[in-house]
Nucleic acid binder design. Structure first.
Lengths: 199, 199
DNA sequence: CCTCGCATGTGAACAGTGTATACATTGCCA
DNA sequence: TGGCAATGTATACACTGTTCACATGCGAGG
């Protein structure tokens, strides 16, 4: 495959793949049309057969980045062992994974939430949101979390981890400040208290 | 003043002023050198006598935007009446002001925390950070907040309001979701609980 | 007071962007 | 098999940031 110069068939996917790779290493600003075209061995104008404008391409890459985030959260969730306090440990693992993703993959994280790319966070790709909601339902179901906080819990939890993630991925890690892992523990513990959970 | 084409003396300040104005209305992407030069009635190259590169200009504009944020927080703090629970109401007012700034001035908020412009949030311009820390000290001093949470409180509070602000200013306000004011109330209440404060 | 030096601004150019348009190629289907 | 719609090319254009040689004028030292 990938022989004929014309019609190699999946140019759209190839462009997105290279975009995701570039953005991962060098951030959203590394997403430049002509470079992607060169990566794919194609003329710059060819991209316009698949994306009306580069903003549309950018939006799609952002969606894929958000998908990566959801995958990381889900993986962390499934990595958690069963047993005592499993629901709480799962919930904490998800939160930690969110911030970890922001720190370990700053390029993807920044891309995921770049202005103009998010049309409706919870509507369009409910994956990450659903992972959170399911974890919260579990907490209520086994009595770990008071039901009265259930309604507001998603926003409280999401704001906290998103804020920490944004701060840690934007600000270069200062050697004097709190180490990353401690910061994560602190914020996750804060969320747990905010949800009325007593350990 | 502003007569001689050459050496109008405060070009640097004028450029920053126009940049702040443009960025306020149309976001960070509206910061284009040639337009700023045109605004100031000056050749594009003139800017290079005051800024090595546009990134330096951007960084300075970001600093000014963060200063606006701190000013808004301080104003909200001082607008709070004295009386019963004054320290808590002040603290809440500060948090609300942070998110309100993100919602009401998305251009400035986004500019303030754009990647690469924040060298060390808490170090470089401690204004906003200090406002928060002072409010927390007050809470501990009058016994509203347990002292054991004092150390981790700044990070918990900051992450929450910054996260909500980032989400609300990035995501266009969806008519179906929680109204902005309710979202703010929910998150602020969450922070209060996370800090072990019982109303 | 004058003059010369240095800070500041100008003009023209260049490389790198996204994008539009006219044209070329190919796969597919009637 | 012939033609047509989908896909890719070549070229050009407007708009970025940036550089460099040159122009200007303010202010300090004779």
């Amino acid at each position: 495959m990938t022989e004929s110069p014309y019609h190699h068939g999946n140019l759209r996917a190839v462009l997105l793949d290279h975009a995701l790779r570039r953005v991962r290493q060098h951030g959203p600003s590394a997403l430049v049309l002509r470079d992607l075209a060169k990566d794919a061995g194609v003329s710059p104008a060819a991209a316009y057969r698949h994306f009306d404008t580069i903003e549309h391409l950018r939006a799609e890459v952002a969606r894929l980045a958000r998908q990566e985030l959801a995958t990381a959260m889900l993986a962390a969730r499934n990595r958690t062992s069963r047993g005592r306090n499993a629901s709480l440990r799962r919930f904490e693992a998800i939160g930690r994974a969110y911030v970890r993703f922001a720190v370990d993959e700053p390029g993807w994280f920044e891309t995921a939430f770049a202005k103009g790319t998010v049309l409706a966070t919870t509507r369009e790709d409910p994956m990450a949101w659903d992972v959170l909601v399911d974890a919260l339902d579990e907490l209520v179901a086994d009595g770990t979390m008071p039901a009265r906080y259930r309604e507001t819990a998603p926003l409280v939890a999401w704001a906290s981890v998103h804020g920490l993630g944004a701060l840690l991925s934007t600000t270069p890690h200062r050697p004097d400040g709190t180490p990353v892992d401690e910061a994560i523990d602190v914020v996750v513990a804060g969320v747990v208290r905010a949800l009325g959970i007593i350990r």
